[in-house]
Amino acid sequence: MIDQIRPAELAEWFARNPGATPVVLDVREPWELQTACVVPQGFTLATIPMNEIPARIAELDANQRIACLCHHGARSQRVAAFLAQNGFDEVANIAGGIDAWSVQHDASVPRY
């Protein structure tokens, strides 16, 4: 089962395994990243569009703790499930996506 975490719970989720590198994997399209993007604070930000994940999975480390992010949470849920099926044990979906991030965590992030 994929963990569903709210943006406000992200730091706590990463802290559950302090030995793993915390990564937010943003799977939105480039135009979406130009519209709104999170600022890394206590984590590394990786950006790979959802459709490119299978071809670029080698860019990710299965030993990292990866929280997937998209616009509302549907694409990132699929990516998290794909990663889990491919040997990534510590993956989560950021519930509500960047829209929830803006509402719950950082109002400076534009909503679209």
Rank of each mutant, 00 (worst) to 15 (best):
A15F: 07
M50I: 12
E29S: 09
N17I: 09
D61C: 05
A11P: 00
N86C: 07
A46E: 13
D106I: 03
R16Y: 02
A8E: 15
P110L: 06
P22H: 10
M50V: 02
R6V: 00
A107M: 05
A36M: 10
E32P: 05
W31K: 13
P30D: 04
S76E: 00
A46Q: 12
D61N: 12
A20V: 05
A58L: 08
V27I: 07
E90R: 14
Q4Y: 14
A36E: 12
V23H: 05
L83K: 08
F88E: 04
A55M: 13
G42M: 03
I94S: 03
T44P: 00
V39D: 12
A80W: 09
C68D: 08
Q77H: 13
V38A: 04
I5E: 04
A62S: 11
N63A: 01
D3H: 15
W101M: 00
Q104N: 12
A8F: 11
A46H: 11
T35A: 15
P110A: 05
D26G: 03
P54S: 03
Q41I: 05
R75Q: 12
S76R: 03
T35S: 15
P49H: 08
P30I: 03
N86P: 08
T47R: 10
N86V: 10
I66S: 06
A55R: 10
L45W: 07
L45N: 07
Q77A: 15
A67H: 10
A95D: 13
A67M: 06
R78I: 08
Q34I: 10
P54C: 04
I98Q: 03
